[in-house]
Amino acid sequence: MHRRDLLRLAALSPLLAAAGQVAAADAPGPIDLMPKFWQAYDDTRDADDRTQALAATFFSEHAEVYAGAGLKPTPERLGKWPPDFDAMAGQVRKLGADFGRHYQRHVQHFQVEFPDFRRERAPIYLMPSLFGFDGHLRPWQGNLPLFIGIDGIVRYHGADANLSVFLDHESFHLYHAQVLPDLIVDDDPPVYGSLWSEGIATYVSERLNPDASLLQVLLDDRKLAQVDAATVRDLAAGMLKVLDSVAPDDSNRYFSAGHKGPEPARGGYLLGLILARRIGRDLPLAQLPRVPTPKVRLLLQQHLAELAQGTAA
């Protein structure tokens, strides 16, 4: 989740007012590039220069969408991708074919909880991402689309990925940006903002998918799902020290999948989930994204202190 991208969205358009409940049947569906991709993929399997053939028959045609997603299908990248993709192509086809069913389920329960979500302001694009991302939010054409790389989902979450959890998590980020953009109005947001944003997105996906495992809710991060209570206490104590920090190193330490250090990578997601569970006990689900920023800061500090001291209920 890139909160600076949400800031740019806020600059592109005014805060959207509540629009009333949108029926699931009326929600705009995903813009699916995969059928055209599969046609190109199948037609170029035996091409002498497969990289050039794929570029000519698919990627060049959709260059504008890829530019919108901030992804460049360079010849070098296209040349390295097919061997690994070929090995999972069947799984990607199956997951893509099932996407519509997962999407409708997601819309139905998400819209019940958040009826004022302006889904038309957050179009979804299904595309091969060359393993560049599973889900990516990036302002484009005055909206904040969700670009979904089906190949990225299979690579990073497996062929049996829980798409309902994934979609609820990402859609909540989009919704949160619509109802409370002031949480992210700084080019260098404080750590507590990311903690809350990721925490409640993870919590909402858990609440809307009660049958999902903790592993699925944490977006298939196996190491994070196995963190023990002592590590949670250490994470809370460390987070307290940098809660207001705007330094990228502090943010990466808790929210980057590439972090290497004593803390578990993406530890802020687990910590945020625990905090959102505690804070959410006293609030309706739809109220969580509307908690004013100063109160968010106060609540997070209070509950982090209790976790760090081992006194949390």
Rank of each mutant, 00 (worst) to 15 (best):
Pro123Ala: 13
Ser245Leu: 05
Phe37His: 03
Ala97Met: 05
Tyr175His: 15
Leu218Gly: 10
Phe58Gly: 06
Pro181Ser: 12
His136Ser: 12
Val112Leu: 11
Pro189Gly: 12
Asp249His: 11
Val154Ser: 05
Leu9Asn: 04
Arg3Gln: 09
Glu120Phe: 14
Thr311Val: 14
Pro35Tyr: 08
Asp43Asn: 15
Asn162Tyr: 03
Asp32Val: 08
Glu113Trp: 00
Met1Asn: 08
Leu9Ile: 07
Asp282Trp: 03
Ser194Lys: 02
Arg233Ile: 13
Leu54Cys: 07
Ser171Leu: 12
Ile279Glu: 00
Arg297Pro: 02
Glu198Thr: 09
Phe110Trp: 07
Ile200Glu: 02
Ala19Glu: 03
Ala313Trp: 02
Asp86Phe: 03
His136Thr: 10
Ala122Val: 13
Gly149Cys: 06
Pro139Val: 15
Asp168Glu: 10
Glu113Asn: 10
Tyr103Asp: 06
Asp228Tyr: 03
Ala19Val: 10
His2Gly: 10
Met239Ser: 10
Phe99Arg: 04
Met127Ser: 09
Asp98Arg: 07
Asp48Val: 14
Ala24Pro: 00
Ile200Asn: 02
Ser60Asn: 14
Leu130Lys: 06
Tyr192Pro: 00
Ala159Ser: 14
Leu283Gly: 06
Leu183Ser: 09
Leu300Gln: 11
Ser60Trp: 01
Leu271Tyr: 03
Pro30Asp: 13
Gly152Met: 04
Asp220Leu: 03
Phe114Lys: 08
Phe133Pro: 01
Leu235Trp: 01
Arg278Ser: 15
Pro35Thr: 14
Gly310Gln: 06
His157Ala: 13
Ala19Gln: 11
Leu304Asp: 01
Pro262Glu: 15
Pro30Val: 12
Leu224Ala: 14
Gly149Val: 05
Arg105Trp: 02
Trp196His: 10
Asp187Thr: 14
Tyr125Val: 15
Asp244Met: 08
Leu270Ser: 06
Ile184Ala: 13
Asp228Val: 12
Val65Phe: 05
Trp38Gln: 06
Leu283Lys: 13
Leu300Glu: 03
Phe99Asn: 08
His176Phe: 11
Val107Gly: 00
Trp38Cys: 06
Arg290Trp: 00
Glu170Ala: 11
His157Gly: 06
Phe58Ile: 06
Ala53Pro: 02
Gln39Thr: 13
Glu206Asn: 07
His2Arg: 12
Ile148Cys: 03
Leu288Asn: 01
Ala53Phe: 01
Ser205Val: 03
Leu304Val: 13
Ala276Gln: 00
His62Met: 04
Asp244Pro: 03
Leu208Ser: 10
Ile124Phe: 12
Leu298Ala: 14
Phe110Asn: 07
Ser194Tyr: 00
Ile153Met: 07
Ser13Trp: 02
His176Glu: 01
Asp234Glu: 15
